[in-house]
């Protein structure tokens, strides 16, 4: 090593390295900040458009929150076409998952039929509960109206075909859907009351 390990040298070099690295990091952060935000928005938008009927507004710009109980609220993205509301995407969550929180985007048309559901994040077991992202599971909700389609698994007397060997994850999914529907009901009630 060319440089002697004197106190002055050590402090100087270490600070230099830190300074250069921090500057580099700041630079990269500045460059990637916009794409990171864009990626997050794109992800939400993709989830929204996959679960509600065709729309021409920007739901993420008209977002509002609806409270379920105290300290518990869900985010709602309203979709409209030509100024006429066509449905709502509700970003629902549940903590009844097998290993933590499950976040699901649930889309309703204006009559309350489920147009589609899309898992945003989960940490369920791969190969078991993680199958909630398989079309074979989530396709069963398409077009169903929770007023007639009971949102509990068949084991509990409902209408949902649970994922094989993952009843807890299926129940969590059902819970997330029920919560979303509760929010939907409170929105539609409000607008009817206003009319």
């Amino acid at each position: 090593m060319a440089v002697e390990s004197s106190f002055k040298n050590m402090v100087l070099r270490l600070s230099e390295v830190c300074l250069v690295c921090s500057a580099l990091l700041g630079l990269v952060y500045g460059v990637t900040k916009a794409p990171i935000e864009a990626a997050a928005v794109a992800k939400t938008n993709a989830a929204i458009s996959s679960v509600v009927p065709a729309f021409d507004n920007t739901p993420s710009g008209e977002v509002f929150k609806v409270g379920l109980s105290e300290g518990d609220s869900l985010t709602v993205y309203p979709a409209s076409s030509g100024g006429v509301p066509v449905g709502f995407a509700v970003e629902s969550n549940t903590n009844r998952g097998f290993s933590g929180t499950v976040k699901v985007m649930v889309g309703f048309d204006i009559e309350g039929n489920i147009c589609g559901t899309s898992v945003i994040s989960h940490s369920e077991t791969p190969g078991l509960g993680a199958k909630m992202t398989d079309p074979s599971f989530y396709e069963q909700f398409k077009g169903k109206n929770p007023s007639s389609f009971k949102l509990t698994v068949k084991k509990d007397g409902g209408d949902i075909d649970a994922i094989t060997a993952a009843t807890i994850s299926s129940r969590a999914y059902a819970d997330a859907l029920s919560r979303a529907y509760a929010v939907f009901q409170s929105i539609t009630c409000k607008s009817e009351c206003n009319e």
Binding site: G71, D72, N93, N95, G100, T101
Partner: peptide, 10 residues
């Protein structure tokens, strides 16, 4: 960085 749910709300 992670939300935890221990029986209650996450």
């Amino acid at each position: 960085s992670k939300e935890f749910a221990f029986g209650g709300e996450a």
